[in-house]
Design a protein around this nucleic acid. Structure first.
Lengths: 259, 259
DNA sequence: CAGTGGTCTAGACCACATC
DNA sequence: ATGTGGTCTAGACCACTGA
């Protein structure tokens, strides 16, 4: 039976339903939005399971189908993953669901540049550089944490990364980075700051190697290098990280499949 | 009522249903597969509308919801697009649905490199070059059509494209390319060969400009340039085109959003 | 065994397009 | 006024998981 027949507008129940009422948005979108908030608030931690569709349908006083559609969209966006017979689980970068899914750099044998040795050259708090400020939508001079690291492949340096974090979103992260030297920044953002990176925008350019990066990579000045400039957005759309990766492309390339 | 109650297994009807029966695949997947075939066979041409959900449900003797799920997946994959109140339409590269969706090169003002002046330097039938052969999964020496063209931006040459097509899939395309000089090869593949490009894989590298491309772009030998190597696959998964694009990246960059 | 998500049905109302 | 896709309901059976 159609809900609108049963509850014309006022026989309305429950607190949760109040949250969902006034908007003209479809119910399943409202449910999705609400569930996403609850996941972000940590009500269910990464790896844990959400309540079953039945339970959620009862809680929101909606049909199972409506809740299902909300959860299906969340699954499609990678926030949760579903397993028939088991349940719906909050995905995690730290879990083994899709580690390194944003790493699009590969070596010539098709191996992903991700799990290799990383050395941290420098980690410091400083006022943000102009280019990163533009990317992170911050005023020039805003506080930031900047991190320079170097990836190796077969003991050869292949990639320099400069990573800039908005210090207002990730306060006191510098000592953590220095101490732990984590292979994945995004794991750390999720674990310590509840920031889930869901989307990145990358710009790829070619240019000649220069200055410190040339030295770190062991290249002559002017050698053609690939530059990947990345802005990472957290769930909700706030830019949390600006990153630039530079590597010589006799050894590595950027790979993208689409369709 | 559940269909399985009404039709245990043998009260089964209709030719279409026979096609869909023996497999263990969900019904909506079978419907999807069948509809995709019908679109590819040209039963509904790009821009035209499919029958309504109701009609298709009757035709397949299934519920509207099942047909809907099939069509929704097709829409998600971009084969059709849906408009409430109007219908479901076969998408087209020539139509205005998603033109140039594979073009990921932009200038520094954020404009897509796509609609600009194109000049054809050369179009010829020849035996395939080694690199394209590997990409297209062909034997070295297989017949191919090779096309070299140059894109301009504000009257400056910015991008050299070498395009190689598998002559077995696209016979006699050379004269068409020479005559029409189309801005989009994929429109032509769809119109004249019923090949719908649905997926591309791109590898991006940096290197020094060399030989003919340096001359065409007006660059000194060794100037860093961006090289995008693309393999385009048609619906069904056959590689139909290998393409290499080379440009100086003081003027252009490769952009990719993900998540 | 009970519980979960996955599939399928049948029917309702809605907003929107078109004529 | 008619027809379209978009939303929502209520209930069925299934395959799979885990205790």
């Amino acid at each position: 039976m159609d809900k609108r027949l049963v509850e014309p507008d006022e026989g309305v129940p429950i607190a949760d339903r109040d949250v969902l009422r006034p908007s003209p948005l479809p119910l399943y979108q409202q449910v999705k939005r609400h569930l996403v908030q609850r996941v972000l608030a940590g009500e269910w931690k990464p790896g844990q399971s959400l309540p079953s569709e039945q339970k959620l349908a009862q809680e929101y006083k909606l049909s199972q189908g409506t809740v299902r559609k909300a959860i299906e969209e969340m699954a499609q966006e990678g926030l949760v993953s579903r397993q028939a017979g088991r349940g719906t689980f909050v995905t995690s970068h730290s879990g083994n669901y899709e580690p390194f899914r944003f790493h699009r750099l590969f070596d010539n044998e098709g191996r992903r540049i991700a799990t290799d040795a990383v050395s941290f050259v420098r980690v410091e708090d400083r006022s943000i550089n102009a280019r990163a400020a533009a990317g992170l939508q911050l005023d020039p001079g805003a506080p930031s944490t900047e991190c320079l690291r170097l990836r190796h492949l077969d003991d050869q340096p292949v990639l320099v990364e400069k990573i800039v974090l908005n210090a207002r979103l990730t306060p006191d992260i510098a000592p953590i980075l220095s101490r732990e030297e984590p292979p994945s920044i995004y794991q750390l953002l999720e674990r310590d700051y509840n920031l889930l990176v869901t989307r990145v925008v990358e710009r790829v350019r070619a240019r000649g190697a220069a200055g410190e990066e040339a030295r770190l990579l062991g290249l002559a000045e002017g050698t053609p290098v690939l530059e990947v400039e990345r802005i990472a957005y957290s769930l909700g759309g706030a830019p949390v990280e600006w990153r630039i990766m530079v590597g010589e492309t006799s050894k590595i390339h950027y790979l993208h499949s689409s369709g």
